[in-house]
Design a protein around this nucleic acid. Sequence first.
RNA 1: GGUCUCGUGGCCGAGCGGCUAGGCAGAGGUCUGCAAAACCUCGUACAGCGGUUCGAAUCCGCUCGAGACCUCCA
Length: 493
Amino acid sequence: MNTHLTVYNSLKREKETFSTIHEGFVGMYVCGPTVYNDVHLGNCRTFVSFDIIYRYLLHLGYKVRYVRNITDVGHLLDDGEDRMLKGAKADQLEPMEVAQKYTLGFHHMMRIFNTLSPSIEPRATGHIPEQIEMVQQILDNGYGYEANGSVYFDTTTFAEKTGEYGKLSGRIIEELQAESRVLKNQDEKRHPSDFAIWMKASSEHIMKWNSPWSVGFPGWHLECSAMSTKYLGKQFDIHGGGNDLKFPHHENEIAQNVGSCGCQPARYWLHTNMLLLNGKKMSKSDGNTISPTELFIGDSNHITRAYSPMVVKFFMLQCHYRSTLDLTDEALQAADKGYRRLMEALKKLKTMKATSDNGSMDAEVDGLLETMYTDMNDDFSTPKALATIFELVTRINTMADAGPEAGMISVTCLDRLKKTLHVMLFEVFGLLDEGEADGQGQAVHGLMHLILELRQAARTNKDWPTSDKIRDGLAALKIQVKDGKDGSNWSFQ
RNA sequence: GGUCUCGUGGCCGAGCGGCUAGGCAGAGGUCUGCAAAACCUCGUACAGCGGUUCGAAUCCGCUCGAGACCUCCA
């Protein structure tokens, strides 16, 4: 198996061979959601992407510590109001109730998308001492200054001494300093490009903590620096997040890490691209959005019908994580069909038999399985891997049609095909076969088997009216009957 | 205004200098009692205009168009 993994590093703007700091171990930090609101689909795309990256690394045999934070304090809006407080006011709740409510909602959605839980999911409010400590280190190192109880990061000094500011996002410090935007507490900053690492709280502010500088709260960017350092060390392998976090969030995060510890936090920075809705970025704040739930129940004027979670996930997999993905009704319909075709082929594969020791298609199948890994090793290219998998789907259908006596695949190759495909689709991509239900589903399978037997009897007797009545009746129940060479099959439409 | 990304056949979406993915839709065929499913065959697409090269969707320049970031966002 080809295990030469390359990843696109945003920091270098090129693909690099992936190698770890500690042999066999991967430390990965991904910026999680701010829990003041229901998750939307864009968040889901990012976390699904990193889930597949996490799963693939595990599959390659790495021991991965995957840290994804929950932001429950510190995001300031334009008017200086805290996001969490805004959410609290809107729902008439304690800030912690807001955080709890939306954290649970987020976890629920992540389960629906069948993603694995991160190894550690730290909360910003649970790491105030660590953040205070980091502010102190930054001050000690001369990269911060205090003003009226708030502490700011001194980007100018930092840029002069290290030359590190702006590298990730391609910003030029002089241009950032020329920014003339008027923001709250702008007068306390020495330069517009400076940013708060500790904010003094006003009297009405609910979430606040004691610190050497004031009763206040940490800056937004600080939590990630502090928590990644705590759980993954000063230097770790992968840092991920959405493209829209590159600046200022990740740029400032790097500044804080370098400013406090003296080194770049992550070797590889991975950024997922945005999910668009009908050509425009989906965003919580501007209303151009469709929620996962709306998508699943078909309740939105952007779509004509409902799409299941796995269809949506499959739709996401057809596009590379670094490309924008445009969500349209038409594209979802195509994904729906493609996903079903894939699952049907897998079903066929389950019952497929091989008799020969040497299959005429063995080499081709093995070649495609190998290609599938090459695809994934190319910066986790799920679209390429999926294309290769569909090449396999065609082969599977051909072999199933021909039957075992055709000698197309050997026992060992078939076994390999089954296992490898199963691993890639269910363990790495984290797809679920939604047709495979348990409990009631078992009964349905039994009933369908019985019904198809009765229909087969009618067909043997050339009793076409009965045969067609069964088929049409099932079709009305959205069950499609598929007649093949050796008997009939069925699936939900 | 600044920084950056992108523009691929009816739709979505790979492609990173020669071997021209894949899905959906469409056409023809095989199979079938009919239909569906499945399989086989088919589309010579790369925004436009120049340039580099033996050769460009792929590199360079310009034009047009779209999007992202620059301010909270995954």
